[in-house]
Design a binder for these strands. Structure first.
Length: 488
DNA sequence: CGCATACGCGCC
DNA sequence: AAACGGCGCGTTTGCG
């Protein structure tokens, strides 16, 4: 059947030199290359060789390190990324203990509820269909039941979207909607977490994710098989999954998170006087921002004013425009426009900074974090407005998210150093990194004391002289599981 | 049948 | 239309 010429294996043959090249050196090369061009996430050997237009790793090595120095990335490489390599290896090796029975219990409960919801949905729809299929669901909702949404969002492929934010608009229009939303939630929790995690547990009853040190364009880490950076936290049903992430006997879990770290970074990178003052005051940032934008006293801030301030505060970090702001706030375009204008009139230092980041990115082609990590932007000078605007949003976010990534990576190293200095490496094990949070397993009798020390180590990662006096406030909580943690 | 894509959604 | 940055992944669907 198969001719010999067909299906010839397209395997790149390894040269003797490539065979002999130290795998650890190759791993370092991959990291160096990613620092040079962070679009190349998780670069493989092929990418490394392609960069230097060679089939010799030795040659590629020279080219890559030369380029690393040329772009001023040596310090990021040596001081941030290299020390992290063995730490990540230890994290992968140790893994995190999973309470399989807890997940089995959840599975039973949620499957029962799911089946019940499905029945109700079929009754309300008047027929059976696959609720997991957006296509079939769309037919039921928009054709058979004739439900309509004004300004109905379309999907990439042109179909009427059934995503949550659209269904929310129909919640009060038809009783099937709330059931579908509940069904979606349970289905997601079961298929992605509750019924999948148990299949990935090792003989040691622990979950060993694979961490990617070079997994994002901004400097962040990523996690795969499974992704432990998106374990549910928002809803009670989802958060219950965290109860299954437990400490080994004789240990406790300790979670440390940097409070509002991205906004703090935006404050000191921009040098915005008022935002800096708010953080230095130690008060609630969203309330204080609301007070200033709406020109009321701190005590006169209503929950709705705070909510709006929170939306725009987060939006800033992502380069959000007026339209996206309106989308999030509800309300009219004019209201959103006024709010947007008032915000930047008040925080003018932030406005100037954001413009400067865009201008610098356009001029130089890249942005830099506090520590010099770079991200390049293909489309920053594109004649196509939407391409340029897209690149500008990424450019605004990159120094902020990237500085956060730098800080977390340095924190991991400094905590590792701290435990070695104390001679307690065997009592303090890093388990997880979730972008602004670190989770450790610490020997029970020393957990509280050590947690307080680690908290201080984290707050000292960047000297206040570099943060305009803003403290990188860190919160710690301790518990037997990731789901039931409390301040010590 | 395996694979890529569309869609949707979990986290920060 | 979309209009907000960064990830990984499950299910469905259509294709070869």
């Amino acid at each position: 059947m198969l001719g010999l010429a067909e299906k010839a294996p397209v395997q790149a043959s390894l040269t003797a030199e490539q065979e002999a090249f130290d795998p650890r050196e190759e791993k370092k090369l991959a990291i160096a290359l990613w620092l040079i061009n962070s679009s190349l996430t998780n670069p493989d050997r092929e990418e490394i060789l392609r960069f230097a237009h060679t089939d010799s790793l030795e040659e590629a090595s020279k080219a890559i390190y030369t380029e690393l120095d040329k772009r001023g990335l040596r310090k990021v490489f040596e001081d941030i990324e290299m020390p992290l390599v063995p730490i990540i290896e230890k994290m992968e090796e140790r893994g995190v203990l999973i309470d399989k029975e807890a997940l089995a219990t959840l599975s039973k409960t949620y499957h029962k509820a799911l089946t019940k919801l499905e029945k109700t949905i079929f009754t309300l729809a008047g027929e059976e269909f696959n609720v997991n299929s957006p296509k079939q669901l769309g037919v039921i909702l928009f054709d058979r039941l004739g439900l309509t949404i004004k300004n109905q969002k379309k999907t990439e492929g042109g179909a009427k979207s059934t995503r949550e934010s659209e269904l929310e608009k129909l919640r009060d229009v038809h009783p099937i909607i709330s059931h579908i939303l509940e069904y979606r939630e349970l289905q997601k929790l079961l298929s992605t977490y509750i019924d999948t995690i148990p299949t990935l547990i090792g003989a040691d009853k622990r979950l060993h994710t694979t961490w990617s040190q070079t997994g994002s364009t901004t400097g962040r880490m990523s996690s795969q098989n499974p992704n432990l950076q998106n374990i549910p936290n928002k809803t009670d049903l989802g958060r219950a999954i965290r109860n299954a992430f437990v400490a080994t006997s004789g240990f406790l879990l300790a979670a440390f998170d940097y409070s509002q770290i991205e906004l703090r970074i935006a404050a000191f990178l921009s040098g915005d006087k008022k935002l800096i003052e708010i953080f230095k005051s130690g008060r609630d940032v969203h309330s204080e921002v609301a007070a200033r934008v709406f020109r009321v006293g701190s005590r006169e801030v209503t929950p709705d004013m705070r909510r709006k301030a929170k939306v725009i505060n987060f939006g800033i970090l992502y380069g959000m425009g007026v339209n996206a702001l309106r989308q999030n706030l509800g309300g009219t375009r004019e209201e959103a426009q006024k709010f947007y204008k008032d915000y930047f009139a008040e925080f003018s230092g932030l406005a100037v900074y954001l413009d400067r980041v865009k201008a610098d990115a356009a001029r130089k082609g890249y942005t830099e974090t506090l520590f010099g990590r770079r991200r390049y932007f293909e489309g920053i000078n594109s004649p196509l407005p939407y391409i340029k605007a897209g690149a500008e949003r990424m450019a605004i976010n990159a120094p902020i998210q990237g500085t956060e990534a730098d800080i977390l990576k340095i924190a991991m190293k400094n905590i590792d150093d701290f435990t070695k200095e104390r001679g307690i490496e065997g009592d303090v094990h890093p388990l997880l990194q979730v972008h602004d949070e670190l989770v450790y397993e610490i020997r029970e009798e020393m957990a509280v004391e050590t947690a307080r020390d680690i908290e201080k180590v984290m707050e000292s990662v960047v000297p206040v002289s570099s943060t305009a006096g803003i403290i990188l406030e860190t919160h710690v909580s301790i518990g037997k599981s990731w789901g039931e943690m409390a301040a010590p």
